[in-house]
Structures are given as structure tokens and as C-alpha cells.
Computed example of a mutant assay.
Amino acid sequence: MATPKPKARFMDFQEMLSIDTPQDTAPAPVQGGILEMDFSQMESFPNHRFKLYEGQQLDDMVESVCQFGILLPIILWHTEDGRYIILSGHNRKNAAQLAGLTQGPVIIRENLTHEDAVLIVTETNLRQRSFSDMSHSERAYCLAQHYEAMKCQGKRNDLLAEIEMLLNPHDTSENETLAEPQHKLKSREKLGQDYGLSRDKVAKYIRISNLIDPLISRVDTEEIAFLAAYDLSFVEDTAKQQQIADLMESDSYKVDMKKAELFHSYYETGKLTDTAVVQILSGEKTRKPKSSKPQSVKIKPAVISKYFTPQQTPKEIEETIDKALALYFEQQNQEVVMT
């Protein structure tokens, strides 16, 4: 038996949205309207980074759905291959199914890039959840995506404004929308104000979002401390990150602050070999590597004025010093040969 097509019903909601008509699998919704769709037709967002509610939080949502139904429509992405992927509403769908419902209200979006879809997923989670209740990995992922969106112009800003209207249709003023990201404050300062974080903490979260899943999941379980994860995130080679994660899993190694600092230092100096990774994790290496960068030497102004005139440029002075040193070391080598 064929799966029933979602039936459209008109509601005066979000007239600012331009919802395109899904072809063949769904009837055309009225502009600003909402569809009722079977949950069986919806798919979860691939590699969804946000954990479903559990315990009391889930029980409360199920009870709310039983009493009032789904109050906020699920946002779906109708892809080019005809799939309906959930962008916002994974918990609503889960709670509704536990409450015995088989369908719910949806808003369908089309003509989205994958980047647009990811932005909707992260932005709606930031707006609908308590930031303090999120895990470290969820916060990092959200803030990183949100930060990138705030730096973009044009379509991405329009999309953010659209999301804001979706979630708060009556609370967004004309002069205070996410479509106007040119704030006097810098992006990270703005994020910090929005979510009660210092600019430094926002920067650290954005950095640890670069950790691969097996490592950032250990931050969630407190096997890796937050500040240790920050240092570890400077190892930007994902193959090296994977090696660290594999060794932690197979040999039960731990990454504390000291080891994370060593990983940071060895990677920055280009000395984080496979052997060094094992030695750091096992505790064999305990000191930072010596820097391979050339030493910086400052010449006192009195010395410069002794040999050069004020009219000579820094480049001319540099070239003269270079020639003088070349001549000096040449003479030194000749004296060594003669002796």
C-alpha cells in the first residue's frame, strides 16, 4: 500500500518564507502555510551532532505533546533526490512518536545547499535549547557554525534572519535581526554576549570544534579536560589526531594538560612524528622540543648610529651587515685553514 502523501492545511504563519512546491511527493502548500506529514517520511539529518533528550527532559516533552500537540513545526529539507531530511525537530518527532502520534506539522524548505542546511540545524539548536545544558561538543559545533555564518554576507545572513523569524515570529524587531550582523562588537564578542561566555571562551570552543569525533567525545565525558582539548586542537593533522585517539582506545592512555601542551609544542615545531606521539602518550617524553626557529637579535641604536647614517634605509643597513658578516666568516675560515 502506497504511503499517503502529506496533506496541506493553511495557517497564517511565517509569510516571509517562500516555500517551493515539492514535486510529485507532496502537494503545494499555501505560501506561509504548514503541511501535516507522516513521521515515516522523515529522515534524521546525516551525522546529527546533537543528542536526543533523555530522562526528565524527554518525559516533560512527551507530556507536553500529549496535552498540546507539537506547537512548533518541524523544519524539513526536501532534497533534489526527493528525501525529506529533518533540520529542526528531531526531539519533537521522537517525543511525538513516544506519545503515540504518527504525523506532525512541518515546514518544507527546498533549494538549500548542504552548508545552508547545516546552518539551520545549528542555529535552531542554539535558539531552542539551553546553552548551559549542551555538551562541550554541541557547544563547540554550534558556536563554530554560528561564527562562520556571522562572518558571511548576503544569502547566509538572509537565512539567519529567516531562521530567527521561524523560531520567534513576533519577537524580532525591524532593527534587531540576524540579517544585520554588522554590529559594533566583533563577532566573538557578540557570541559571548548572546551565550554568557567570554570572548576567550568562545575562541576556545571554536578551536576544539576542529577535534575529530573520537577525541571531542572524550571532552564530553570529561576524560579530556576542556583546556587540554584546546591545546590538543592545535594538532591540525587529522591523521595524527586519529593516531592519538586510537592509542587512547587500545592502550588506555590518558591526555592530561601536560601531554596536551607537549602535543601542541611538538606539532608547531614540526616534530610530532608517529614515534613522538607514542612517547608523549606513554609519558616517555616530558619536555617541550627545542625551537628550530632562528634566534631574533636586536642591535642597539648606538651601534647602528656608529656605522650608519640616518639617511640609510633599513634595507641598506641589512644588506651592509650581511656583506660584513660574510666577509668576517670568510676571513675566519681562512685563518683556520692556515693554522
Results as ranks from 00 to 15, higher is better:
147 Y>I: 04
173 S>T: 00
184 K>G: 15
162 E>W: 07
167 L>I: 15
147 Y>A: 10
169 P>C: 08
168 N>L: 13
144 A>T: 14
159 L>P: 00
175 N>T: 02
179 A>F: 04
169 P>R: 12
165 M>Y: 08
157 N>P: 03
159 L>S: 00
184 K>D: 14
189 E>W: 06
152 C>P: 00
187 S>E: 08
174 E>A: 01
150 M>R: 03
160 L>H: 03
154 G>N: 15
153 Q>K: 08
189 E>Q: 11
175 N>I: 02
176 E>M: 06
184 K>F: 15
171 D>K: 11
156 R>Y: 01
154 G>W: 08
178 L>V: 00
163 I>E: 02
167 L>V: 14
158 D>Q: 14
183 H>S: 13
180 E>L: 10
149 A>P: 00
144 A>P: 06
157 N>M: 11
156 R>G: 02
180 E>H: 10
158 D>R: 12
168 N>T: 12
174 E>W: 02
145 Q>E: 11
185 L>G: 11
175 N>Q: 07
177 T>Y: 01
144 A>C: 10
162 E>R: 09
188 R>Y: 09
146 H>E: 13
176 E>S: 04
182 Q>M: 10
187 S>T: 07
147 Y>K: 13
166 L>M: 13
149 A>C: 04
160 L>N: 06
157 N>R: 09
167 L>Q: 10
170 H>I: 12
142 C>G: 07
153 Q>A: 07
143 L>V: 02
152 C>T: 04
173 S>R: 00
179 A>C: 07
156 R>C: 01
154 G>Q: 12
175 N>Y: 07
142 C>M: 08
146 H>C: 07
152 C>E: 10
181 P>H: 05
161 A>K: 14
164 E>V: 02
155 K>N: 08
159 L>W: 00
142 C>V: 01
152 C>H: 09
152 C>A: 14
147 Y>D: 11
181 P>Y: 02
177 T>P: 01
151 K>F: 03
189 E>Y: 06
170 H>L: 13
160 L>V: 03
162 E>C: 10
164 E>T: 07
143 L>Q: 09
159 L>A: 03
183 H>K: 15
144 A>K: 15
182 Q>R: 13
180 E>M: 10
189 E>C: 07
155 K>V: 05
182 Q>E: 12
185 L>H: 12
156 R>F: 00
187 S>D: 08
164 E>H: 09
175 N>E: 05
153 Q>G: 00
161 A>T: 13
150 M>N: 04
164 E>A: 08
148 E>R: 11
157 N>G: 05
189 E>R: 09
